[in-house]
Design a protein around this nucleic acid. Structure first.
Lengths: 335, 335
DNA sequence: GGCACCGGGGTGAGCGCTCACACGGGCGCG
DNA sequence: CGCGCCCGTGTGAGCGCTCACCCCGGTGCC
């Protein structure tokens, strides 16, 4: 075993197969003009030596690393992590590696650090699971030599060169949820909105407003956490319950359900609740939660496709994926 | 602007600063013997040119990519995603990049593909969020030229060179949960176990058995999903309720709570429930769930530390982190 | 028969960096 | 005063690959 010494290089394979290093390269890159028997000889030498192409050398000369950098918030939240998984799978299909950087804060500094991190690494493209307006502004301010795709529903991403944007149509999802509640006969629908510096929160609010109309009550702004929903739920019980609530995500809805259950308020009889995300477990909340599902697999594919288009020099418009309503017990009054 | 042409190289910086490329390299690598004024001149040239060190070239010559490969299941499950986040943060602290590969199945083929993927990329080390025995066996069968750390509670990982293992002490956590229920005065504790090809499930079962003793009723094996817990809960209601249940994860517990709530069984009055994971939202289940929390940040640091030790040639034993019990309403009978 | 052309394959340069080593000058010390 | 040593810096090789180009021999066509 010479395992520890130095991994085999292309020249070693070439020597063993009795060809030039260039022929080995041709075999590796599926170049057509190699005789089948030569190809086979090379392939066997590769196997025998346990040869693996050195990607650093390849990257050095081609100036392409085949790596996609993904910036994601440092949380185990359902949306971002699902998006990450979707991205990884889509990237792998087209032969890209995925490198990850998490950020704790969405300020310009963190974003700048993360981008530098990736650019120094030589990624070919960057995807940013970028929820807040602040992030978007930070991105816009940084001149990236590689294409960047912003994954968010941002309806108003500033038009920056190299900056694409894809997302699930949050507004559409919010319309579905709100309309569903209205269709159930609830006279009006209160919206518990997420932090308004998040695009998703903005768009869910906008979708709700489109359907509920100008006469609807004001929305209530909250965070994303179940604790926020819980506090709010308790306050509602004290100050008066609406007929129906559209919560900006499932965690908020979960907190509301908790508060209502604790206070003896029945859902959906006393108040109907709809969430957003269809988190793992949402089908087993008490009661099972009506919510809006996003196709993160499709989202990942869309993001990757968008980057590929960017490489090809195409100027892709913003692309959106429709959302899907999942109706469960929390919004359907028993007859 | 010559931006599109070719990114500036070390030699460009050197020319601008009036030094040799080697001096630039020394500045970049914080080599002590550079005069402060020279250093400053170089630094300024770097800034002026927007120079970024080409990591491919660096990797090529040093044979170190500074990249950690992480293999993780392709799910948004709380445990794996939290571990991933913990790993990324720990890796970044020591200056490593994190590259991710997700796998859908835990068979040897998938693992082999993922490892080849990383080895071809030239990672310096690999962390495997490796839940099943099958994965561990697959790893053991692959000779990796770089250190591999298995992140799992596996008590019986086969001793393979270069294969380290770290984890949260699942058995300890299970003992805490079970003992807590016994301390509350519940005569016996039924365990709803996870899939027994998962290390975590095995160890949680083992910990439960250690405390509950041989006289305890048989455990019930299930999956990891809330749906499994729900089915089981319904069956328990039909066939007879235990006094207390220790579920192998929070999702199972959530399903149980759902079934019980639906059937009018009160928790914890009729049956107490404890979960495992302390997922986001567990504090707002109905009722709030007593569960076992794992410190994923510490886990990531431990894994990274273990790899660093491997680089240093140390032969590190398996390392475990204690778990922590979080008591909430689902297991505490109201007085 | 001469020439173009194409399949199959080889040669050499160079990507941008680090490493080993060389080199000159100042300083301490015998 | 001479020698050695260290500080600060430069020189050149080479990491393993791809790209541009060259070369040779067989085939088809005028």
């Amino acid at each position: 075993m010479n395992s520890a010494a130095r991994p085999p290089a292309m020249s070693d394979v070439a020597a063993l197969a009795g060809v030039s290093h260039q022929t080995v390269s041709r075999v590796l890159n599926d170049h057509p003009s190699v005789r089948p028997e030569t190809r086979e000889r090379v392939t066997e030498a590769i196997l025998q030596l346990g040869y693996r192409r050195n990607s650093a050398a390849r990257t050095l000369v081609t100036r392409r690393s085949g790596t996609l950098g993904v910036v994601t918030p440092a949380t185990a939240l359902y949306g971002p992590t699902s998006t990450l998984v979707g991205l990884e799978e889509a990237a792998r299909v087209v032969g890209w590696f995925v490198s990850v950087a998490t950020i704790r804060q969405f300020d310009g500094d963190s974003m700048h650090t993360a981008l530098e991190h990736f650019l120094g690494q030589g990624v070919d493209g960057i995807a940013i699971i970028a929820p807040t307006t602040e992030v978007a502004q930070a991105i816009a301010a940084i001149a990236s030599p590689v294409p960047v795709v912003l994954i968010s529903s941002a309806s108003d991403v500033p038009p920056v060169p190299h900056l694409h944007a894809v997302g699930v149509d949050q507004r559409h999802g919010a319309r579905l949820a709100t309309q569903h509640l209205l269709d159930q006969g609830f006279p009006d629908v209160v919206h518990v909105a997420g932090p308004q510096d998040w695009f998703d929160a903005q768009d869910r609010l906008a979708g709700w407003r489109e359907v509920s109309g100008p006469g609807a009550p004001e929305h209530i702004e909250a965070g994303w956490d179940a604790a926020d929903g819980y506090e709010l739920g308790l306050r509602m019980v004290r100050e008066g319950l609406p007929a129906a609530i559209f919560a900006a995500n499932d965690q908020l809805a979960l907190g509301l359900l908790h508060a209502f259950w604790e206070q003896g308020v029945r859902v959906p009889d006393d108040v109907a609740v709809v969430g957003f995300d269809d988190e793992v477990g949402a089908a087993h909340y008490t009661p099972p939660l009506t919510t809006v599902r996003q196709d993160f697999g499709a989202l990942g594919r869309l993001a990757v496709g968008s980057l590929q288009a960017a490489f090809a020099g195409e100027d892709v418009a913003r692309q959106q994926i429709p959302a899907e309503l999942v109706v469960r017990a929390s919004s359907v009054r028993r007859v």
